[in-house]
Design a protein around this nucleic acid. Structure first.
Lengths: 124, 124, 124, 124
DNA sequence: GTGGTCTAGACCACC
DNA sequence: GTGGTCTAGACCACT
């Protein structure tokens, strides 16, 4: 389920956060559901438990998951809203990237094609 | 001309690189032209000269600028092509971001609006 | 009667202890009276019996309740005094919190209002 | 300056957070000022650097301090507001404690005396 | 079994 | 020198 690239320059704990957010968005993990325990995921990915814990506790701080000590981590009921809102916050960043690309002479059609691809994939 | 945000988590030398690339793309600095010296820029931004040097030498490695010992740094003739090509390489990254946003339920119109804005600004 | 919040970061057994102490203070449960059995309470709250047992045995150690093997747990005669004394011990902690709030610029009136509210509610 | 009680049940990193917030509130450390480096504080308190880092990065997340990699941690300009707001959020918790104490028969005068003490100390 | 705190030590990036 | 990531392993509290 989870897949980590240890060579990537984006930290492992960030990769875990991103993937879990993705799983929440696409419904692989539903609100209220329990997520893999720190230990089990650390074994599965052959990663140190502390790394998993860091990812989980940051998601906890953001209100996306919550911990029940002795039982495990669970997805918050309003997790979907929070994750979506976070993505909205990245729109300005997107605008900056687009402006760069426009400046670099990347044709508008190239961009639009990518947009369409992203949104038709979602329709399925 | 250059502006650095010390609070940002993107390294200062990266910020310098990005800004210089932008200046090359929008024609503020033309190919063959000399760019600010390491010392002058370090004074202007009150930044350690080593930080400027790191940015410049990476741009040098990429073939975007070149150094003439004793005179300074100059923009390569084919700098524009190289910078543009680098932006093209970021298209796949863009696709990934777009897919995320589609999944997050951000309306396609919102994206298209941003695309149009970026490209009309460029028309000027 | 008892209500447990599994999402809270305060342990369940602590919540049970606090609630039972509250019931003793406000007279819902009188000294000498029997309290819910470990098994029945565990069923009612859908909680592991060990959790209930831990709460009860700590209250036992404190001299607030006592167990009669084969019959159940009962409230000690002097339970009220012991619980009250425990609350007195928290006064210093309260002072520290108040000092913090004073430092944070919370107006004294705001505090006094809360004090009055707590004590008028008690008059009822 | 900082003092940690390793025996306390409140985690060391929490103690560090609390003390730093206190220093910000009482003006010992002003907004914009640099705070002790992770390493220096770890040496001074004979505590592992990771423990300091955990405290600092949580304060970073809360927007109370910010890090400039390679330079150190600094107090945010609006740190005072954020810390004060956090204390306000604890008012409801205070109300609950007060209600408990009222129920326990602690005389109102005892409470008022503590309130006055906290607020006259602040007047100095 | 679960999460959570802490330690000791390594390595990297940035300044 | 600074912060930041990651590992390995210990110990505690909760269920």
């Amino acid at each position: 389920m989870f897949q980590i690239d240890a060579m990537s320059r984006t930290p492992m704990y960030e990769q875990i956060k991103e993937q879990l957010e993705k799983f929440i968005l696409n419904g692989t993990i539903a609100p209220g559901e329990q997520i893999p325990s720190v230990r089990s995921l650390s074994l599965q990915l052959s990663i140190n438990p502390n790394t998993i814990l860091k990812a989980y506790s940051e998601l906890d701080t953001q209100g996306i998951i919550y911990s029940v000590p002795g039982k495990g981590y669970f997805v918050c009921e309003n997790a979907l809203d929070i994750v979506s809102a976070a993505k909205y916050d990245k729109l300005d960043e997107l605008s900056a990237v687009l402006a760069d690309m426009a400046l670099a002479g990347i044709p508008k059609e190239e961009i639009l094609q990518r947009v369409n691809k992203a949104y038709t994939k979602h329709d399925r």
